[in-house]
């Protein structure tokens, strides 16, 4: 999306010290929340936010995105930015999950996950539709010689001078899984925050519970979108913008993103909780 072509050389190496520091920050935030608010709703909200954030950060790694080269059939994947494609799917999931909020956390979270997966399933199908029927190009992966799911061989379908194109079946499945994780994560953050705000806001603002519902919904929704974007962008930094799906070697970098997402969500989460609980 940017004309700056140079990719950073962020290696696959794991910085152990930094990981440990990250985990310590995470534990400190969880401990501080427990110390400040006890094991009540606020603490559960923080745990929900951390789980949601990790689901988002992990899910982004499944979404097959090729960036600018994919638009020219030079690289496999979907031709757009990874953070925003994941956001599109995750927010479509959040839309469904928020609608089902009164059905309980489990049903609403799964509804959100299905919403995200549905969006990605339709989008990925249409990507292949355009490649095959619009441009006459079959799918081929550039990173593996055999599709790990179907066993189809890939290299002979790769046209000359490219790294592959389209979405092989494994990438399609990755896209759907990414949508499922993203939708579930975004919805979970929304639900725990909504519960907390509906509980705490009436006392804080001296209003009836029914009156503050719009505030609680808007606050929880806005924070869910904000935290989704933070986690998705951090995960996009981790894979330096493009990935083919779960079979891509870059996928192995996910532990870094899981730690980063957990810490980032914890920090954002404790502030979002303190708005009503301090």
């Amino acid at each position: 999306m940017s004309a700056i072509g140079a990719k950073p050389a962020a290696g696959a190496a794991v910085d152990t010290t930094a990981m440990v520091v990250g985990i310590i920050i995470l534990l400190l935030v969880i401990g501080a929340t427990y110390y400040l608010f006890g094991s009540g709703l606020a603490f559960m909200a923080l745990i929900g936010i951390i789980i949601g954030g990790v689901l988002i950060g992990f899910g982004v790694h499944f979404v097959p995105v090729g960036g600018a080269p994919a638009a020219m059939g030079q690289a496999p994947g979907i031709a757009t930015g990874v953070a925003m494609l994941a956001a599109g799917a995750g927010l479509a999931g959040l839309f469904g999950g928020a609608w089902a909020a009164e059905m309980g956390v489990v049903v609403a979270t799964i509804t959100g996950a299905i919403g995200g997966g549905l969006m990605m399933a339709i989008t990925c199908m249409f990507v292949n539709f355009i490649y095959v029927f619009g441009m006459g190009i079959p799918s081929a992966s550039g990173k593996v010689t055999k599709d790990p799911i179907t066993g189809d061989t890939q290299p002979e379908f790769k046209s000359q001078g490219t790294e592959g194109h389209g979405l092989p079946f494994v990438s399609y499945v990755g896209g759907v899984i990414g949508g499922l994780f993203g939708g579930a994560g975004g919805t979970l953050i929304y639900l725990v925050l909504l519960d907390l705000y509906e509980e705490e806001l009436p006392a804080m603002m001296n209003a009836l519970p029914a009156q503050i519902v719009p505030i609680a919904v808007a606050l929880a929704g806005m924070f869910a979108i904000g935290m989704f974007l933070v986690n998705a962008v951090l995960a996009a930094y981790n894979i330096t913008g493009t990935i083919e799906g779960p079979h891509d070697p870059k996928f192995k970098r996910f532990p870094r993103a899981v730690v980063a997402s957990a810490v980032a969500s914890a920090i954002c989460g404790i502030v979002a909780i303190m708005i009503v609980a301090v």
Binding site: A70, L85, G88, T123, I130, Y131, M135
Partner: peptide, 12 residues
């Protein structure tokens, strides 16, 4: 997201 994913390769 849907529009760019579907339409970009056809134009590009």
């Amino acid at each position: 997201a849907a529009g760019s994913a579907t339409g970009n390769p056809f134009y590009g």
